[in-house]
Amino acid sequence: MMKFIYMMASPPHFYRLAGKWLPWLSGITLLLLAAGLYGGLIYAPTDYQQGESYRIIFIHVPAAWMSLFIYIAMAIAGAIGLIWRIKLAETVAVCSAPIGAGFTLLALITGSMWGKPMWGAWWVWDARLTSELLLLFLYLGVMSLYSAIPDKRVASRAVALLALVGVVNIPIIHYSVEWWNTLHQGPTVTKFDKPSIDVRMLIPLMVMAVAFKVYYVWALFLRVRVELLERERNTQWVKELLKMNKG
C-alpha cells in the first residue's frame, strides 16, 4: 500500500498525471463558473432587504470558505510531508499558500465592498472580517518564510511546521476575535440576521463553492508542476522530458 502511494507521489509520475488532468480541470472549472455566474447574476432573485448588493455573496462566501479550507489542506499536506517525507506533499503545502492568500484577499475585498453599502463603512471591525485579516497575515507569514530560506527542502519543511502551528491557532484566534467583538461592539452594528436563504440563491452559491474547489485543484496542479520542475531540474526524468519537448 505504502509502496503504491510512494509511486503515485513520485514527482515524474505526478508531473505527467497532473499534465493529463489539466485540460479536464480547466474545463470543469470554467463550466461551473459559468453556471454559477449565470445563477448568481441572472437566475437568483433580488433580495428584498439588501436589493442587488447581496449578489456579492456568490463571490464573498465561497472565497471565505476556500480561505479556511486551503489553510487546513495546507496543514494536512504539510503534516503528511513531515511524517512520511513525501516530497509531493511538501510541494502541495507550499504551493497552496499563494492560492489561499489570493482567496483570503478576495474575501476581504469583497467583504469591504459589501460592507460599504450595508454598514456605511469600508471597514468594520467585525469578528469575521478581523479573523479573515489575521488569516491573511498567517498566509503571508508562510509565504515569506518559504521565500526567506534558501534551501527549498528545508524551507518546505519549515513551512509545514508553521502551517501546523497556525492550524492549531486558527480556532483559538477565531473564537477570541468573536469574543472580543461581542464585548466591544454594542448592538449598534447591524449584523444581517440570516433568515433561511431562498433555494434559488442557495443553488448558485453551492455551484460557486464547488467551482472554487475545482479551481483550487487546477491552480494547485499548475503551481506544483512548476515547483517540481525547479526542484528536480538535475534529475534524469526532467532531462528526458526536455529532450522530448525539443524533439
Partner: peptide, 23 residues
C-alpha cells in the same frame, strides 16, 4: 443593479483578476 452596480461589479472584477492571475 439597483444602485449597487459599482460595488457588485468591482467585487466580481477583483475576483476575476485574482482568479486569472493565479492561473
Amino acid at each position: 443593479m439597483g444602485g449597487y452596480a459599482l460595488y457588485v461589479w468591482v467585487s466580481y472584477g477583483v475576483a476575476a483578476v485574482i482568479l486569472i492571475a493565479n492561473i
